Amino acid sequence: MNGLAERLKPPEVVSFPGSHLGLRWRPLIPSDLGAVADLIREVEKEDDAIFRTSSQEIADLALGHLKASPLEVIVGIAQDHGIVALGSVKVLTGVTEAAVAIVNAVIHPLWRGRGVGRSLLHWQDGRARQMLVEYFGAESTLQASIANWVDGHMTDRRRLYIAAGFYAKHMFQVMYRDLEGSEHLAPVPENIKICPMSEVSFSQLHRVHSEVFSDHPLAEARDFWWNRALEDYEDRWSFVALSDEGQICGYCMAGRSAESWIAHGRLEAYINTIGVPADHRGKGIASALISASTRAAAHDGMNRIGIDADLKSPTHAQSVYEHLGFVNDRTRVFYSIDQ
């Protein structure tokens, strides 16, 4: 395979979106975070976003300004309205199987339809190519991807990505089931016990998680799922399956998103990541783990519990979840340019 620079062909210079669009662009500085938080929350409410950006994630945008990670964030400022747009490019340093940059944009509804999104994505694409080559090296033979998640109902954004050369690489079905307060437990496989996740170390659990998703087509999503699970983690609703010898045979990390609770006014749990090592699949371990999380969340008074199903899963995850009472809600699409 040719080197990264030859495949990505990064431009020598990447300019900010043009001022002719009515906005002045500059890098984000820490004092912007309050205005950026207001913008993100207003936009996510307007767009009815499936998942909401946490305060931690918003604060982390300043890490690029501090040169603490390969992250670049710019803001678009309207003369009389302050910050009305934001664009970011982040290299995923935790992924070693591929060279991946995630792009993300937030644009106030009043500033859409003026070419801001298209111009911002052009800047993001150019910077992503430059940053990937800078971080991984011009001669790297790693598969390269520039990518982002888009909610399925956001048709304008999906059209924008497609017009820019992205393709729908993967799709996830968001599923929910209502909770009644007294859920039945699924049978536990022989020689397996379901235990609170606090009984194992997170370093050990992370190794199992990495193993479970090592051959997943979206290697770039592995750390995203893990970090999201850690941020929302609720120990009372999270469980591991252990063999008689103490080996981890599966795990189910559930949590609660404070931002979603505030935005929707609804108490719900969400299973952020679940995994069963290949040599333990087909035994009902995933069902037993989900059942334990569901019962625990119901006991704590949650109204419902959610999970997302990989529609390309070789384990037919969606069918398993349907059998456990989950029903389809909305979809998320992973768009990518692969080189």
Rank of each mutant, 00 (worst) to 15 (best):
1 M>S: 08
2 N>L: 04
8 L>R: 03
9 K>Q: 13
13 V>I: 13
17 P>K: 03
18 G>K: 07
20 H>C: 09
21 L>N: 08
22 G>T: 01
23 L>I: 05
26 R>V: 03
27 P>N: 05
31 S>F: 10
31 S>W: 09
38 D>T: 15
40 I>Y: 01
41 R>S: 08
42 E>S: 12
45 K>I: 06
50 I>W: 00
55 S>W: 03
55 S>M: 04
56 Q>G: 08
57 E>T: 02
60 D>F: 05
60 D>T: 07
64 G>R: 11
64 G>F: 06
65 H>C: 07
66 L>Y: 14
67 K>R: 15
71 L>H: 13
75 V>R: 12
77 I>R: 08
78 A>E: 11
78 A>G: 06
79 Q>C: 07
80 D>H: 15
80 D>E: 15
84 V>E: 02
96 T>R: 15
98 A>H: 04
99 A>M: 13
103 V>G: 07
104 N>H: 11
105 A>N: 10
107 I>A: 00
109 P>F: 07
109 P>T: 04
110 L>H: 06
112 R>F: 03
114 R>Q: 08
115 G>F: 02
117 G>W: 00
118 R>N: 03
120 L>M: 10
121 L>D: 00
121 L>K: 01
123 W>Q: 07
123 W>A: 00
124 Q>C: 12
124 Q>E: 14
125 D>F: 14
129 R>I: 06
129 R>N: 07
133 V>L: 14
134 E>D: 13
134 E>M: 08
136 F>K: 08
137 G>A: 02
138 A>F: 07
138 A>T: 08
139 E>D: 11
139 E>C: 05
141 T>W: 12
142 L>I: 05
146 I>H: 01
148 N>Q: 15
148 N>L: 15
149 W>S: 04
149 W>V: 05
151 D>F: 04
151 D>G: 03
152 G>A: 10
154 M>I: 01
155 T>W: 13
157 R>V: 08
157 R>K: 09
157 R>H: 09
158 R>F: 02
162 I>S: 06
162 I>D: 07
163 A>G: 11
167 Y>P: 00
170 H>S: 06
171 M>I: 05
171 M>A: 04
181 G>I: 02
188 V>S: 05
190 E>S: 14
191 N>L: 09
194 I>E: 02
197 M>G: 12
199 E>F: 01
199 E>C: 05
205 L>H: 12
205 L>V: 14
206 H>R: 15
207 R>K: 09
210 S>P: 00
214 S>A: 15
215 D>C: 04
216 H>P: 05
217 P>Y: 10
229 A>T: 06
230 L>F: 08
236 R>I: 08
244 D>W: 02
246 G>V: 06
252 C>R: 14
253 M>N: 00
255 G>E: 12
256 R>P: 01
259 E>A: 12
262 I>N: 10
262 I>H: 10
264 H>I: 02
267 L>D: 11
267 L>Q: 13
271 I>W: 01
272 N>G: 12
274 I>H: 07
277 P>G: 11
283 K>P: 03
283 K>T: 01
284 G>S: 02
285 I>D: 04
288 A>F: 09
291 S>H: 07
291 S>T: 03
291 S>E: 03
294 T>G: 01
297 A>S: 11
298 A>P: 03
299 H>N: 14
299 H>P: 00
300 D>Q: 07
305 I>E: 10
308 D>C: 11
313 S>K: 09
315 T>S: 12
321 Y>K: 01
323 H>K: 11
328 N>T: 10
331 T>H: 14
338 D>S: 15
